[in-house]
Amino acid sequence: MSEPEHPSALALDSLAAGDPVPEARAHVDTCAACTEYVETLRAEAAAFANAPAPAFLANLESLAVEIEPNAKTEETSPEAPRPEAPRAEETSAPYSDEIRVEEIRVEPRGPANDVGAEASRVSSIADARAKRARVFNFVYAVIPLALVAAAFFVLRPSGTPGPDGFPTASTEATMRLKGPPVLAVVRERQGNQERFTSAIAVAPDDRLRLELTVDREGMYEAGLLGEDGSWLMLLSPTMLTPGAHFSEKAAHLDDTPTPGWLLAGPPEDVARARATRDFSGLAILAVKVAPSP
């Protein structure tokens, strides 16, 4: 099989999009299959670019105004940009995957959308109209609802249980802080929850949820690094806005938990810490193993 000889799909896609990929270009010049693939993508891209633009593109200025409260938190430092993609709606909705714009969509999918889905997007005027209507609702109905929901969770009193039983962000955690991120962890043991801001002792069957407070928007990652080098990601690289955030996952410890550290910070710093145990620039909490209660 000749698979390994071809560039990755990502490289070929990038080449078709006009991004510089010298290695892929050299290969495509001598490979009929890859040439055909790239040319097909280019044709699709040209057709797409010439198709009527969806309405939401014309309304981006309005949308930018709608999201201003989130964007206008603090001027970001001009530090090296991170080539990570932003999360679509990672704001301050803690603990619950339910609080996402996508999930509080107020408009049910109508038959018109299903019909439109069966037609080519490029050529379907009907689908474009249905889309335009949906976009309008998204901009003017869903965004304000999402902001209200986010504000509700941020401002809830400390200790109030969230949807999955853990407490939500405390008012203490919503304070704006300067410097590195601040890490706390909520430990659930036999139905009881405690919040720790320094070392934490864990036992089998404990559940841990991270609480990360950041003072500047950026990409953050968090997880549990074992002394044996194991890594349990609790927050995948995510664009966070200033404020308190909770890890998207809770760690449920098995019968033999490993001592180590809870880490949180920029993904590159986390990667370095995992490789070298250099924790500079990161928020850390030592994890010790206690006997089962």
Partner: peptide, 20 residues
């Protein structure tokens, strides 16, 4: 697109634009 509008400034410096 909305996500890029609100937090995609790093795209300007992305070495691999499509990958980003």
């Amino acid at each position: 697109c909305v996500a890029l509008l609100r937090g995609g400034a790093a795209f300007r410096e992305a070495k691999e634009p499509l990958a980003y």
